[in-house]
Simulated scan of single mutants.
Amino acid sequence: MTDRPSWRLLAALYPFGAGAAAVNLFFASLITQALGWRALTPYEALVWGLPLGIPASWYFGRHIVRLIKEAERR
C-alpha cells in the first residue's frame, strides 16, 4: 500500500482544500495592500483557489493516509 490517497478521499477533501486556498488568498491579498498592491475580490480569490485546491487536497490526503496507516499498526 502506498501513501497515495484514493480518488474518493481526494474528491471528499477537494471542496475544503479549494475553499481554504480561496480564503487564504483573499486575506493575504488584504495584507498586501500595505505594500501598495490591490486586494483580490472574493470572486477572483475563488477562481484562483479552485486550481490551488488540488495540491492542497493531495497533501492533506497523503497526511490522512499516513495517519490511517499509523493507527492500523497500533
Rank of each mutant, 00 (worst) to 15 (best):
M1C: 02
M1I: 03
M1Q: 04
D3Y: 11
R4M: 09
P5F: 00
P5Q: 05
S6F: 03
R8W: 04
R8S: 11
L9F: 00
L9A: 10
L10P: 08
L10C: 06
A11Q: 01
A12N: 09
L13V: 01
F16Y: 03
F16S: 08
F16A: 14
G17V: 07
G19S: 10
G19R: 05
G19A: 06
A20D: 06
A20N: 05
A21S: 14
A22N: 06
A22L: 09
A22T: 06
V23M: 08
V23R: 12
N24K: 10
N24M: 13
L25N: 07
L25I: 09
L25P: 03
L25G: 06
L25Q: 06
F26N: 07
F26G: 02
F27G: 08
A28P: 07
A28R: 13
S29W: 13
S29E: 10
S29I: 12
L30K: 14
I31N: 11
I31L: 15
T32A: 13
T32I: 10
T32S: 15
Q33K: 11
G36E: 15
G36L: 14
W37H: 15
W37M: 15
R38P: 13
A39R: 08
A39S: 14
A39D: 09
L40E: 05
T41L: 13
T41P: 12
P42S: 11
P42G: 12
Y43R: 15
E44N: 09
A45I: 01
A45E: 01
A45Y: 02
A45M: 04
L46Y: 07
L46H: 11
V47G: 00
V47I: 13
W48P: 01
W48M: 14
G49M: 04
G49E: 02
P51S: 12
L52V: 05
L52P: 02
L52K: 07
L52C: 06
L52F: 10
G53P: 04
I54M: 05
I54T: 08
P55F: 08
P55M: 07
P55C: 08
P55R: 08
A56V: 05
Y59L: 15
F60E: 08
F60C: 03
G61T: 12
R62E: 12
R62Y: 04
R62Q: 15
R62G: 13
V65R: 02
R66F: 09
R66I: 07
L67Q: 10
L67A: 07
L67I: 04
L67K: 13
I68G: 13
K69P: 05
E70H: 09
E70D: 11
E72L: 07
R73M: 10
R73C: 05
R73F: 04
R73I: 11
